[in-house]
Simulated scan of single mutants.
Amino acid sequence: MRLDDFDNSINVEDQRGGGGRFPMGGGGKLGCGSIVIALIAALVFGVDPAQMLGTLQQTQVNAPAPQQGGSTLEESCSVNEFSRESCNALSSLNKTWTPLFAQANIAFQPPKLTFYSQAGNSGCGAAQSAMGPFYCPADNGIYIDTDFFTEMDQRMGAGGDFARVYVMAHEYGHHIQNVLGTSTQVRQLQQRSPSEANRLSVALELQADCYAGVWAGRNRDRIEAGDIEEGMRAAHQIGDDTLMKAAGRRPVEDAFTHGSAAQRMQWLKTGIETGNEDQCDTFK
C-alpha cells in the first residue's frame, strides 16, 4: 500500500532501549482487551494465559508513563522499515478518521503510538512481546513491538505491507470504539452476562476489522496489486480457528475471542468494499 510519509501531527513514544518500568501496586482493573491478549498469546506463542493474566492483574493500571528516550519523531519512526511503515499508517489513519468525527460533531483525539522492544509499560500494565500489538484504552495508546511483524511473516504466514498496516488499522479501530463508548458498553454487558462474554468479544474484534477495512476502502487509490490478498490472508491466519489448529487444538467456537478466519475475512472485506463505518455493526 502506497502511503505518504508521516507528518509531525502524529503522537509517537519510543520505549526501545530505555527500559520500560514495571511499577507493581495493589488492585487495578484490567484494561479492555487484556484477557483477549493473554488468550491469543497462549494460542500463538504457547504462553500460559493464567500466568499472563496474573502478571497483568498485579500491574497497576494507572502507572505513570515512562519517560521519552530522547528520540526525535524522525528517529523513532526510522529505527527500521516497520517503524516507518507504522508511523506512515498512523498518519494516514489520523487523516482518514479525524474528519469523519468532525462531521459527526464528536470530539476526537487521535491515539498515541508507542514502540517497545521485548518489554515495556502501558497504561494497562506491562507490555510484553508475546502479547502482540494491542490497544490500551486507559491511555489511548497503540503498543507495538515491531518484531511481531517478522513473526507474522515467518511463523504465521501473513507477511506483506498491507497485512502489517491492517494490524495497525485494527488497533486504531479499537481506539474508535473507545471514543464512541462501544468498548465500555461491551465490558458492562460482559460483566452482566458472563455467558455472552466471548460472543461480545468476537463482535468487538470483528468491528475493529471492519473499521480497518473502512480506512483501506477510503484510501482505495493507495491500494496496490496483491494488497487485498495479503490482507485476506492475514485475516485468515489470525482467525481463532486457524490459531487453534496451529496450536494443535480442536477449534471450539464457544472459546473464540476474535472470530473465525471466515468472519475476520468477511468483515475486513465489508469495510474495504463499502468504505462506510455504518456498515460495521457486528453486534446485530
Rank of each mutant, 00 (worst) to 15 (best):
C32P: 14
C32G: 15
G33I: 01
G33Q: 10
S34F: 08
V36M: 13
V36Y: 11
V36F: 11
I40Y: 09
I40A: 05
I40G: 02
A41T: 01
A42T: 02
A42R: 11
L43G: 02
V44T: 12
F45R: 15
G46K: 05
P49S: 06
Q51D: 03
M52D: 10
M52V: 05
L53Y: 00
G54P: 02
G54L: 05
L56W: 15
Q57W: 05
Q58P: 00
T59F: 03
T59L: 04
T59G: 03
Q60R: 13
V61I: 13
V61Q: 11
V61A: 13
V61T: 12
N62G: 11
N62S: 13
A63G: 07
P64G: 05
P64H: 01
A65F: 01
P66E: 02
P66L: 00
Q67M: 11
Q68Y: 07
Q68C: 13
G69M: 09
T72W: 04
T72I: 03
E74Q: 15
E74S: 14
E75A: 15
E75C: 09
S76P: 01
S76N: 00
S76R: 01
C77S: 06
S78Y: 04
S78L: 05
V79Y: 06
V79C: 01
V79G: 00
N80S: 12
N80M: 02
N80L: 05
E81D: 15
F82R: 14
S83C: 09
S83K: 07
S83D: 14
E85S: 12
E85F: 12
E85N: 14
E85M: 15
S86I: 08
C87L: 04
C87F: 01
C87Y: 00
A89D: 01
L90M: 13
L90A: 00
